[in-house]
Write a protein that binds this DNA or RNA. Structure first.
Lengths: 260, 260
DNA sequence: CGCGCCGTTGATATTATTCAAGACCAGTGG
DNA sequence: CCACTGGTCTTGAATAATATCAACGGCGCG
């Protein structure tokens, strides 16, 4: 059965278990990074490749085990991080102890954009599973951008997409009810997986109910109840973290229904 | 009495009355803009001034009557707009008719940052009172930025502050309760007025209860009740749109109280 | 004066949270 | 192998927070 298959595809060893945070060597060590970049399937999402070695945007790669911290609030901002595989969350922390999951990034997306224009990061980024990352030193990107209009525009595009992303979260938190938020969350994931060549209707959530709740401004019990309710309604099939979207148009309808 | 005085300072003619949207000539017409910039008191908030005429970042000025639209969603993005006087709101609109006030900008702040990296704006900006605006064509800024690192960094700073602003709204919407949100809103305004040399404890709101509610993810009745409640508690003095903050530390305590 | 918009307040309904109990699952150690 | 543990998830009942519906007062404006 499809769900069971998806369950097996997800690494059972990393479910519910936070590994010890540490760095492990990236694959491809020894191969010049510039050459790795030219063969990277993310090319169209990434920065334009120059012709000289000094044009390389990626300085190095990192591998993070599940639960590892990529950076913390207050860490100096030095680079953007492109996710090659895996996923990360970012968490906002306030002085008074409030905290909120502010983003969930998957392959082909940039983590660390919050530090641009500042000297330090103001959130922390944590790997939700074993994750491979390209490091793009920002001072170097800025230098390239002064020479190369396309690089400059890519920086602006990355910043702008972060603004747009946060804007849509604002809109969600400000105008949607609980069930609409969860539907919107699932549809957003669906779209992003589709854009990156994964299944858009069947995927494994890498976050706990509590993390999803934090992202959506809800309590974990509410998230759980909503999943159950959507399941009963036949909109989705949910088995722990394995989700199958059964009725995309009904989900879209839920989001669009202007009950509020 | 102080409240009555503040009431008088606000132009009674523009209270509750939307004027017809149209452009009126900016003051200082005929004076070279570069010279106007050198005498602008916002200098430290704005882009660095170059020495040549071609370095000027401001191409022109605009005056908007209350209710006038600066740009609409879908309008081509061509420029950033710095507010010289007055205030604007931006409104997000979705296909399905949901809408939300997403920002409230005052003197010295930049409107239109949402368009950076895109070809069109995705929100609409509306003057909340008669407002004077400096137009900074973005293509020109980008060109200057390639020559001048300080300009480049100013662009990044402006983008980053927009990201930070949206982030704090996300945090507010995701983790605070109604009363905390309103307190946070008032304290945010207080800080921004103080930074710009206005009174930090006494000001006139330029938004209706409904607009404030939209911004805070609340209904207008809730906002009204909260104002009344805070008034009874002695935290603020509220008379229509004239607000006096009586107990800043109690307001801060409200925001910080981790009831949730 | 009457109209339209804005704001306040009360009663009621709806929605989401809180508190609490228990199930499930994987890893651990006897 | 099994019992135990800790983290995660689900569900129910009670409660709190917020929205909705409705009425009314105030004010500026034509």
């Amino acid at each position: 059965m499809a769900l069971a298959a998806a369950m097996e595809r997800s690494n059972p060893a990393d479910r519910y278990t936070a590994s010890i945070a540490r760095l492990i060597p990236a694959t491809g060590d020894g191969v010049p990074l510039a050459r790795q970049c030219t063969s990277c399937s993310l090319e169209q999402h990434c920065f334009p490749l120059g012709t000289r070695a000094s044009d390389a945007v990626v300085s190095t790669r990192k591998r993070l085990y599940k639960g590892a911290t990529l950076f913390r609030a207050g860490d100096p901002f030095t680079a953007l991080y492109a996710i090659r595989s895996g996923s990360c969350k970012t968490v906002l922390l306030t002085e008074d102890g409030r905290e909120q999951v502010s983003a969930y990034y998957i392959r082909g997306e940039y983590v660390g954009v919050d530090g641009v224009g500042a000297t330090t990061h103001n959130c922390e980024a944590i790997a939700l599973e074993d994750t491979e990352i390209c490091v793009l030193p920002f001072a170097h990107l800025e230098a390239l951008a002064r020479d190369n209009e396309r690089v400059q525009q890519t920086i602006h595009r990355v910043l702008a997409s972060e603004i747009a992303r946060e804007r849509s979260i604002m809109l969600m938190l400000g105008t949607m009810r609980a069930e609409q938020r969860l539907a919107a969350f699932l549809l957003d994931l669906s779209r992003r997986y589709r854009e990156r060549g994964y299944s858009s209707t069947e995927f494994v959530l890498r976050m706990t109910r509590e993390e999803i709740g934090s992202y959506l401004g809800l309590k974990l019990e509410t998230v759980s109840r909503l999943f159950s309710h959507m399941h009963r309604e036949g909109l989705v099939q949910v088995q722990g973290r394995v989700v199958k979207l059964l009725d995309l148009s009904a989900l879209k309808g839920l989001v669009t229904s202007s009950v509020q």
